[in-house]
Amino acid sequence: MTETPDPAVPQLDAEALKARKRRNLWLGLALAGFVVLVMITTVIRLNTGIGVSERM
């Protein structure tokens, strides 16, 4: 028994798949960068006490 492709799902050619993989890679890198930046700001705020008084 063979699986027939769902006509509602667009079939991507090799070039489209490659482009999607590249986009996903950039998206992953951007997300990782965002996490690193949040971590850096958090560490600096904790070390320097920035924002402590304004939240008390």
């Binding site: 930046l37 850096i40 700001t41 600096i44 320097t48 920035i50």
Partner: peptide
Amino acid sequence: IHPAMAAIATL
């Protein structure tokens, strides 16, 4: 301003 904070604010 902390240099890293200045860089992130600029970003």
